[in-house]
Amino acid sequence: MRLIKFLWIFFLLIFSEFIYAANQTASVDVVTTIPVSCQFSNISPQIIISENGGLSTGSFTLNCNKNFELQLSSKSLKDGDVLTSVKTVNGEKLNTIVKVNFIGNSYELDEVKQIRVLDPSSSELGTISINLANPIHATTPAGVYQDVLYLDATF
């Protein structure tokens, strides 16, 4: 009987590694990178200023996934004018009033403006309104008067 117990214990010791399950764990890092992006869309291709002094409007949408700054400027301001204006190729000019509504604020473009957005939503709508600063007269030189508005997003 002792021999049977001894054999049974010996058998259990030899095959005990098969009786107890061993656990092993490992980990794998899962990573993705979302690139920073800002994109303009729905930009008004042209804003035609009313010659009777009425307000003309345009709009744009800006989508960013990170804090950004929006710089507002115009060709006339970059060319050194004190006020925004539309000009003919011959140099005749008419001063304008340009206002940009963006993220609940209104900005008059009387100099290059830098708007800082610290908490962008998925889509920010902006509107641009322009009118002549002074009414035109019968003596106002005929021609096509133009300016360019610049919207630059940096992030």
Rank of each mutant, 00 (worst) to 15 (best):
V30I: 03
A142H: 13
N23M: 00
I43C: 05
G80H: 02
S73R: 01
G80K: 02
L72D: 08
E111Q: 15
D147R: 09
P135C: 06
Y20I: 15
P120Q: 03
N52I: 00
A142K: 10
K113Q: 14
N131D: 06
I19R: 06
Q39P: 08
A133G: 00
D147W: 01
L77M: 11
I43E: 07
V28D: 01
T25F: 04
V30D: 00
P141M: 05
Y145N: 13
N52C: 00
L118V: 06
I47A: 00
N134T: 15
P135V: 14
K99H: 15
S85T: 12
I43F: 06
L118H: 08
S73C: 12
A26I: 05
V112R: 14
A142Y: 03
I47D: 02
S85W: 08
K5V: 08
S122K: 11
G58W: 00
N63M: 12
K99N: 13
V28A: 05
G126R: 02
K75D: 03
N131R: 13
V148R: 12
N23E: 09
D119I: 12
Y20H: 11
L94R: 11
Y20R: 11
I115W: 06
D147N: 07
I115H: 01
F60W: 06
L83I: 15
K5Q: 10
T25Y: 01
L55E: 06
L151D: 02
L3R: 09
S27H: 03
I130D: 03
M1K: 09
S74M: 09
Q24R: 09
F68E: 00
S106M: 12
S41H: 07
I9W: 11
G104M: 07
A133W: 07
